[in-house]
Amino acid sequence: MSAASQVSPAATPGVAEHRQGGMLAGRGAAMAAAVIFLLLALLPLAATALNDPFLMVTATRIMIFALAALSLDLVLGYGAMVSFGHAAFIGIGAYAVAILSANGVGDILVQAIAAVAASALFALVTGAISLRTRGVYFIMITLAFGQMAYFFMVSLSAYGGDDGITLPARSTLFGAPLLDDDMALFYAVLAVLILAFAGLRAVVASRFGRVLRGTRDNAQRMQAIGFSPFRYQLTAYVMAGAIAGIAGVFLANQAEFVSPAYMTWQRSGELIVMVVLGGMGTLVGAIAGAIAFLLVEDWLAIFSEHWKLGLGILLVLLVLFTRGGIVGGVERLTGRSQP
């Protein structure tokens, strides 16, 4: 505790980075996440009171992207792997639902298992190849794999090709159409989001997570004490892909429609923006970033069809004037020093 107070506040970028690294050990992140989850859990009440069912639809969509951003934070924030093809995993998960339900398999558990298997396998193969490169080349190769998945789905005319495919119905659980109710879907997504957050928090503090974080900070040092980074980075990449696949399962159900547009490189870019906006390597930041990004997007769209320009300006300001994204900003405002 006393050690932390001796560290001067983020005077250098290096210090800012390490403050993020310390965040996971702190109670601050867990508390912030608990507040976010609590507010989300109460949201349906507000939606009912305001008689605004669309609120819940928006919130569900936001939570789905928060789940995907959360998984990206594992590779981007904790693994220092700038994956520019993360939307492909969402798309693979979504198509697992679409293809299975088009073939009469509507059970969400079967669909989820297929989605996780397919996205994890795609992550394993593309990750094993991509991780042979570093830096900009890693960004380019993950982008290329993402685009390959995109164009594969575009050409998959049996399942709608470029136009996408409408689901016959939402997924069922043991034959019961539980997710047909928007509120049930909302709480299902919230539960999985909380589970993923808690799980990933444990993972980043575990032996595995410590190796991942150490490799992010100094790969040479990790090799000098006997760790080969590749296996750990690939494992993280596969885990993240699988979680993003789950996000895809929910996205398909929420929209009741799946198209290749889910997996464009713009989508992958937006996920990166969400993580950076919220604060890399904090987990709670990815959730906050997804919420902020999608709310701002909706809000700006009201004013102008050129809302992306406004979004761009906001992002530039954010990157210039805050370090560590939303989490970094909150830390500075509350003066919370991390252990």
Binding site: G21, G22, R207, V211, N218, I225, G226
Partner: peptide, 24 residues
Amino acid sequence: LEGFSVLENAALAVQARSGSSFRF
């Protein structure tokens, strides 16, 4: 590892030789 505690710097080196680090 500048962002890690002094103890964790050494503990990671111990971890490297004591059991699997695929514990999650």
